[in-house]
Amino acid sequence: MIMDTENLITIQEFCSIYKVPKTFITSLYEFELIEITTKENTPCVRVTQIKEIEKLIRFHYEMDINLEGIHAIANLLNKVETLQNEIKNLHNKLDFYERE
């Protein structure tokens, strides 16, 4: 059952919707790729995490990437995001110096 008020979804419900085994979600947690919240002794994930988990599901089930690979990719994507932000800031700074 989805607990809307808490913005949580039980792992059981999540796995049933996405047709992935619970062990996959547990493994993601063990690799510190997602957080699991327990509500009334029921393990849940936050609704705000769904987008990220969907991505991890795609990595594993569509691209055949194992969990170690996903872990490495997740770290690299964080770095990519940081670097892209840095590029954006440097771009703005360059524009500042290029203007008359």
């Binding site: 691209m63 055949d64 892209q84």
Partner: peptide, 15 residues
């Protein structure tokens, strides 16, 4: 296809 998809998938190539 899988080889190319792993290279160009948007999840792996943000923005």
């Amino acid at each position: 296809y899988r080889k190319l998809a792993r290279k160009y998938h948007p999840d792996l190539n943000p923005n």
